[in-house]
Amino acid sequence: MTAVRIIGVGSPQAADSAGWIAIEALERQGLAAQYPAGMLSLRQCRAPVHLYQALAGSQCGIIVDALAGTETEVLRLTPEQLQARTDLASVHGIGVGEALALIQALGSGPAALTVLGIGIDVQAVPELVEQRVKELLPDLSQCIARIIAEYVAAAEQT
């Protein structure tokens, strides 16, 4: 049961794979080893509704997901900001925004919950998705480092 969970949402298919590819890249970078043992874990998640289970018991949740767009930086969003976006590509009944809103409504999610969006052309072929994640990986790593630092600082204050 790690306090910090970084969860890539998606599937192996094309643009939707960005979240998963990002998690694999962070694993290769040895991200978990950069923090105290047992503090941080990385995982992939397919259906957004599974996030309830995946985030259970954590204190800081970071969701990495593909977002339709061509932004040159990783987008840092609150769950509310994600829900307010109208350009979401998720097509099924319960998307990431709705799943996170539900977790918050139940009061069972981590106190700190952030979405990191990787802007992707929804029609991008797999090679372009990998290239895009590679380009944004330094920014993604910095965002994650900042979020964890903020979480640790807040935890120390309480």
């Binding site: 509704v49 599974h50 309830y52 289970q53 319960i94 709705e98 809103a101 539900l102 409504a105 139940l106 009061g107 069972s108």
Partner: peptide, 22 residues
């Protein structure tokens, strides 16, 4: 309008659903 709204009044039932689904 949504399960998120419903969760405010029926949190135990929604949690039960999510447990069974998991």
């Amino acid at each position: 309008n949504s399960v998120t709204e419903m969760a405010g009044k029926y949190p135990a039932e929604v949690r039960r659903g999510l447990r069974l689904q998991a």
